[in-house]
């Protein structure tokens, strides 16, 4: 693999590449994200943002209590979020645990959802604490069952102890496994990396290793996709595009529960990475509760009043 010519796969070249990155000033990043949160998105732009956000949702269920029935319901909802209104777009993907991928694949195909992505969380999600053979087998299972997107976690322990090359090599191996069969999203668990410097470093590491998407969190750790963390990642993909002419996607996940939060994310994308990233192929929002709030707000814009929650489905 060529790694965009940025590194040669050796520890020293990786250290040199990461060492050349400029730092992130936490106060400044927080301030910029807070300023962008004041943008007032109204009327036609709000309508556009709601539909765009729906099409970017990775509709997620990642629970120990997941059953085939639950996953099937989720898939139906993903294809037709509002059964009474066909103008509502499908979501970007459904996101499930590995053992549910086969169920989801079958049901998506059954309900005409071939266009909806199927993401599997992989590599011993959420902690990533397993041996590499296990992680590889885990990923292979998901691919065999028909996943079109692999959401892998990085080894945060290795990252925090400075073993960047281990983190890099794991991503490279999973990337090779995915080949052309699946998009690779790399989850950092930013709540465990804790500093914006680490988020920036992890972003550039994952992009060079072959990630198609960089993703904030598993949803199991708080804080997750805070606006400044997403800002730092959007700056990273923007800068990486300058370096390589390749656009890498960003997926915030965790803590984005309502339309207001989702629109703030779109503003961050628009004014940081740029409007080119405002497409489901380059920006996704990992969420479960968010979709219903988007649907409620969409109905409100059409009807002029808030409908009862009974009018949106709970699947």
């Amino acid at each position: 693999m060529s790694f965009y010519g940025l590194v040669d796969g050796s520890d020293s070249s990786l250290r040199k590449y990461l060492g050349a990155l400029s730092g992130v000033d936490q106060v400044g990043a927080d301030a910029r994200a807070a300023m962008l949160a004041t943008r007032s998105i109204k009327t036609s732009s709000k309508r556009w943002a709601i539909d765009t956000a729906i099409s970017m949702v990775d509709l997620t269920t990642l629970e120990g209590a997941d059953t085939p029935g639950k996953v099937q319901a989720l898939c139906t909802k993903a294809v037709r979020p509002d059964p009474t209104n066909s103008s509502v777009p499908s979501v970007g993907a459904v996101c499930v645990y590995n053992d549910m991928v086969a169920v989801a694949r079958k049901h998506l195909d059954l309900v005409g959802g071939a266009h909806v992505g199927l993401a599997a969380v992989s590599t011993a999600f959420p902690s990533g604490r397993a041996s590499m053979p296990v992680k590889i087998q885990d990923t292979q299972d998901a691919l065999d069952a028909g996943a079109s997107e692999i959401d892998m976690v990085i080894d945060r322990g290795a990252f925090l102890s400075g073993n960047y090359i281990d983190v890099f090599n794991e991503i490279v191996q999973i990337r090779e496994l995915c080949g052309t069969k699946a998009h690779l999203k790399v989850i950092f668990e930013t709540g465990e990396l804790t500093t914006y410097d680490n988020v920036r470093k992890a972003s550039f590491l994952a992009m060079a290793a072959g990630a198609d998407f960089i993703k904030t969190s598993t949803g199991k750790i708080a804080p997750a996709a805070t606006p400044p963390v997403v800002l730092v990642m959007l700056e990273a993909v923007r800068d990486f595009y300058q370096m390589t002419q390749t656009r890498i996607g960003v997926k915030p996940a965790g803590g984005i529960r309502n339309t207001k939060d989702a629109i703030k994310q779109l503003v961050l994308v628009n004014e940081t990475a740029g409007p080119e990233w405002l497409t489901p192929s380059l920006f996704r929002i990992g969420a479960s509760a968010l979709l219903n709030d988007l649907l409620m707000q969409r109905m409100k814009m059409d009807d002029g009043y808030y409908a009862s929650p009974a009018y949106v489905t709970i699947d």
């Binding site: 943008r39 007032s40 998105i41 109204k42 009327t43 036609s44 732009s45 709000k46 556009w48 943002a49 539909d51 765009t52 099409s55 777009p89 779109l266 503003v267 628009n270 409007p275 080119e276 405002l278 497409t279 489901p280 192929s281």
Partner: peptide, 13 residues
């Protein structure tokens, strides 16, 4: 939604 539409902010006076 794959077609690229720019995110124009409507007036918010």
């Amino acid at each position: 939604m794959e077609t690229q539409v720019s995110f124009e902010y409507a007036p918010a006076p």
